[in-house]
Amino acid sequence: MNTLFLYTMSGLALFAIGLHGLIRSSHLLRKILAANLMSSGVFLIMIVGACGTDQVMIDPVPHAMVLTGIVVSVSTTAVALVLVCLVQETTNRALLWQKRKRGQGGRTDA
């Protein structure tokens, strides 16, 4: 039980570190890494919840949910990484907040 709680805290810490990185780091690649950390933290908490105590058998539903979550996160990561490359290509830097005013300055498209 204690070990499980330790894993829970570990998942929480991963989530928090990811959150911190997502908000504070400037390079987009690092932001995406951070988002992946966050979801890993959530997965960890879900799987620990599935373990329960020794008497109760393992709950497969969180396992299925985490499998789904892993696939979802690789999908979004792939799209995000391509977008990062495009942002770098067009603005020469992979940063979200550009030096000029917030991306509103450009022409809007019809």
């Binding site: 890494l33 985490v66 499998l67 996160s73 990484l81 391509v82």
Partner: peptide, 26 residues
């Protein structure tokens, strides 16, 4: 944590493929 299915998927997709994606993007 007795989740072998997740372990397999994590190793192949979470670490392996996502890592490869990151490396190629980098």
């Amino acid at each position: 944590l007795q989740a072998p299915d997740v372990a397999l998927a994590e190793a192949a997709i979470g670490a392996g493929l996502t890592g490869a994606l990151f490396l190629s993007a980098l």
